[in-house]
Design a protein around this nucleic acid. Structure first.
Lengths: 125, 125
DNA sequence: CGGCATCCGGGATGATACTG
DNA sequence: CAGTATCATCCCGGATGCCG
């Protein structure tokens, strides 16, 4: 058998790249992680749990995650107003994958760190 | 039991976010996917397999992946010159995780698409 | 007070053309 | 073949201000 058959089964562009921008876009993973592990919470608590994110960018990411069906936004018309964000069932299907990546990180983060220190090429930063 | 104990075990910032920028940064996933599934290849073939990436950005990403120990770069001093990129053993440990995300994408990509169409909020694009 | 919009600067990214 | 060089563009981040 030629290897072209093998190649044909993998020629398609990376099948997960469309989801990468949705799930692993900037701050998206941190927000999802917080909502999946600590449950529903308000905007301000989300800011506490996702340090260094500015309110503007956090709002942008929340809108995108809401649009993609990964979180819900519930507005409570009170004084003062209260907005609660919560992970959807769709987002919860990501939990085992996040857990797997957490394990990978624990096992290999050091390898990357070592490689980075040993690197002496043009990107040595 | 109070929920503060539960919270304590998850208060740390998202533990996978440092790796997300390395593995799921722009074009990184596509490049790793190509090298993991089709084996070592040259710069030009990588451009063919990762459509729409410009040579400048592809070079940047390859340098970063090399620095982080996920790929190797082998320069063959010939006429014409030949540079071969290959995934390392460290990168191969990602294969099951990529496979898991591929399955998740197959199972839930449609859900995201439906949510996106049904969304009528400020991000309706 | 909490959530969100606007203006601006900087770094990453993209398009196009050129070089060892 | 395997990248650079240059310029345009976009997204992120900081500061400020509005509005319920």
């Amino acid at each position: 058998m030629t290897d072209s058959l093998e190649v044909n089964s993998t020629t398609g562009p990376c099948p997960i790249s469309p989801m990468v921008s949705v799930i692993f876009g900037r701050w998206a993973t941190e927000v999802l992680w917080a909502l999946l592990h600590a449950g529903a919470m308000r905007f301000t608590e989300l800011r506490r749990r996702v340090p260094d994110v500015t309110p503007k960018v956090l709002t942008q990411r929340l809108r995108q995650l809401e649009r993609d069906g990964l979180i819900t936004r519930t507005y409570h018309r009170e004084v003062p107003p209260r907005v609660v964000y919560e992970a959807t069932a769709l987002a919860r299907t990501l939990i085992p994958h996040f857990a797997g990546l957490e394990r990978w990180t624990r096992e290999h983060a050091r390898d990357i760190d070592v490689a980075r220190r040993a690197y002496a090429g043009p990107l040595a930063s």
